[in-house]
Design a protein around this nucleic acid. Structure first.
Lengths: 335, 335
DNA sequence: ATGAAAGCGCTAACAA
DNA sequence: TTGTTAGCGCTTTCAT
C-alpha cells in the first residue's frame, strides 16, 4: 500500500497520465471539465507528486544549500533565518549544513553541488577568501556575511559595510568628546576585521588623532576575548576613555573587565559595539551599538543566488548593507 | 558539456554501466582489476553520481527535515545544530525550515513528507500537541524541545525533564533560606510551562509552603515579558525575596525591573533561570540558572528519527534529558 | 564476475 | 485538447 502515482490518478480519472501531469503543472491546455475530474481523482487518492521524480524529469531539485561554520551563533542563525524565508518565497527549500573546518567544508560542497542535490550554494564563512578559491566556479554560489569581502568582482557577495560601520561607531565616540579611544578587533586575518580597522583609523585621522598600537587589542569575537582585551587595555598605565569594540559579545566581556577594575560605565569608560545582539539592551549599562540587519543579509544573498540559478549568465553582484547607530547607555559625554 | 553520467564512465572504462554502479556502491562482486579501471575513469571524468537519480532508483533521498517556529532563537538553533551534526554522522542531510504559524507548518509537512523529498521529520514546536494531531502518523517523526511532552506513547519525543528542572531550581532557592518565592512562567498553554509549574509547586509543598497565585506571573519567554513580570511582582505590597524565572531571557528582563525598583541583586532579590544561554555569565549579576543541553536534544532526536526511518516498526521512545544547576551570582542566602 | 533488461515517477516532445 | 513515446540516471533482478 504505497503512495499513489500519477498513473493511478490517470486511471481513476479515465485520462492519460500526461493529462494528470498537465493538471499538476497548471498547464492551460486542459479542458476545465477534464481538469475537474483529474483534480477530484487527485483529492480522492490524496495524491502528491513525487518530488524526486519531478526533480529527475525537470532537472531541477528546488533546493538551495547553506553552509556556515555552525548554525548556533546568532550572527549565522539569523542570516540563515533570513535566507530560509527568502528561499521559501522563491519556491526553494534550504538545506542547512555546518562545516566547522575546511575539510568538512569541501566535502560538503562536493556532496551538495556536484551530486546535483542542490542548485546553488550560500556560504557564510569568515575565512571565505581562501575557501572560495577551491569552489568550482561554474556553480551558482553566493558568499554572505563576515569575511565575504572578496575583491574579485566575479562572485556574488553580500556583506556589511564594515568600514562605514566602524567609522560611524568611532565618530559617535568622538562626538561625545572622547579623544583617547581604544579598539578591540576581531581576528586580524578576517577581512571584516581589517575593514573595521580601516574605518576606525579613518575616523581618528579625520580629527588628526594618533593611532596608538597599544590601544588596539585583537580578540576572537567571544565575550571571553572581550574580557581579556579589557583587562589588558584597562590595567596598563594610561587608560582610554572610550573603546570601540568590533562586536557586541566582546563588548559585554569588556564590561566585565571594566567592572573588575572598578570603573563605572559609562561615566569613566564609554563602550560601543557592533551587531545589536538580542539582549544588548539588557546588559548594564545597556549597550550602545551599530545595528546590523542579519536577516536582510540572508535575504539579499538568496535573491542573488536564485537569480544566478535561474540564469547562470547573470552578472554577479556585490551588495553592501548599511548599519544604524543604536545609542543606549554604554556611551556618554567625556567628563 | 554537462555532467558525466554513469554510462560515460562505463564507456571510458570499457565496462557496462552496471559494473560502474557496483563500484560506486562498493559491491564486493567486482574484480579488483575492473574496479581499478572504473575508479580511474571516475576520477578522470570527475564523475559524481546524481543524487536525484540515486534517490529515484533507491527510493531513498537521504534527507531529513526539521521544522521550528524560527531558526533564530538560541534554543531552536542549538537544537538544530545538534540535529544537523547527528544527521550528517548518520549520512543524512538536514533540511531546515521555519514555520511561524500553523498554516505554514502544515503546508511544509505536506511539501516535505508527502512529496517524498525527506524521509523523516523533526518538529521543534512549543505547541506541538495540537499540531501533531494532523501529522500523518505513518511518517517517521520526532518531536523535540519545548512542548514535545505528548502523553501518547506512540510518538518519538525528546524533551527536557522540565518538572525536575523546576524542582531543582526552586529547591536551590529554598536551600538558600528563601521562603517567599515567586515564579515567572512561560505561556500557560505550553506543556513545558505546566511541567515547570508542577515542579515549582512540588518543591514548595515539600516545605509546607503555600503557593501564592499573585506571585505567579505569566510571560512569553521574552526579556520584555520578564521585565513586565518583574514590575508587577516587585511593585506590589509584599515582595518576594526570590524569583524562579522559567527561562533566562525573562530572568534578564526581571533584572532590569529589579534595578528599576532600586533593588540590589542578589542581596535583596535572588533570581534563578533555566537554559544557561551563552551570555548568562555576563549579565549583572551573572545569572544562576539550570543548564540545558540543547544540542543533545537535537542529537537524541535525530537518533530516534533515523532509527524509525530505518525500521518504521521500531517502537517509539520518549527521552527526557536532565538539567544541571549552574550557580552564579544572582542567587544568595536570604538575609 | 559481468552484462542486459526493466523500471523508479515523472516531464518534454511529438503525434493525433 | 488529449494521448503516445521517450527518456531523465540510476539500481535491481535476472541471465550469462
Amino acid at each position: 500500500m504505497s503512495r499513489p502515482t500519477i498513473r493511478d490518478v490517470a486511471a481513476l480519472a479515465g485520462v492519460s497520465h500526461q493529462t494528470v501531469s498537465r493538471v499538476i503543472n497548471e498547464s492551460e491546455q486542459v479542458r476545465p471539465q477534464t481538469r475537474a475530474r483529474v483534480s477530484e481523482a487527485i483529492a480522492q487518492l490524496s495524491y502528491q507528486p513525487s518530488a524526486v521524480a519531478q526533480s529527475m524529469a525537470k532537472g531541477r531539485t528546488g533546493m538551495l544549500a547553506c553552509i556556515a561554520p555552525n548554525l548556533l551563533d546568532f550572527t549565522f542563525s539569523s542570516i540563515i533565518e533570513g535566507a530560509q524565508t527568502a528561499a521559501r518565497e522563491q519556491g526553494y527549500f534550504l538545506l542547512a549544513a555546518s562545516a566547522p573546518d575546511e575539510e568538512s567544508f569541501h566535502q560538503l560542497v562536493e556532496e551538495l553541488l556536484t551530486s546535483g542535490r542542490t542548485e546553488g550554494l550560500m556560504v557564510i564563512d569568515p575565512y571565505v577568501a581562501e575557501l572560495s578559491r577551491n569552489v568550482p566556479s561554474e556553480y551558482p554560489i553566493v558568499f554572505a556575511g563576515g569575511g565575504a569581502h572578496l575583491n574579485q568582482p566575479l562572485v556574488n557577495t553580500v556583506v556589511l559595510d564594515d568600514e562605514t560601520a566602524a567609522l560611524m561607531a568611532t565618530r559617535h565616540l568622538l562626538e561625545l568628546g572622547h579623544t583617547q579611544i581604544a579598539m578591540v578587533t576581531g581576528p586580524r586575518l578576517e577581512v571584516c576585521t581589517q575593514k573595521r580597522i580601516l574605518g576606525f583609523e579613518r575616523a581618528l585621522h579625520g580629527r588628526q588623532l594618533p593611532i596608538r598600537p597599544e590601544w588596539m587589542v585583537e580578540g576572537d569575537w567571544s565575550a571571553e576575548a572581550g574580557y581579556s582585551a579589557g583587562m589588558a587595555l584597562l590595567g596598563g598605565g594610561e587608560r582610554p576613555t572610550a573603546v570601540f569594540v568590533q562586536n557586541d559579545q566582546m563588548a559585554v566581556g569588556l564590561f566585565q573587565a571594566a567592572r573588575a577594575h572598578g570603573l563605572d560605565l559609562p561615566t569613566q569608560l564609554s563602550v560601543i559595539g557592533i551587531d545589536d545582539i538580542p539582549l544588548a539592551a539588557y546588559f548594564c549599562p545597556p549597550l550602545t551599538t551599530m545595528r546590523q540587519d542579519f536577516q536582510r543579509i540572508g535575504r539579499e544573498a538568496i535573491r542573488l543566488l536564485a537569480r544566478t540559478v535561474a540564469d547562470p549568465t547573470t552578472p554577479s553582484e556585490q551588495v553592501r548593507l548599511p548599519v544604524t547607530l543604536v545609542a543606549r547607555g554604554s556611551t556618554a559625554v567625556k567628563n
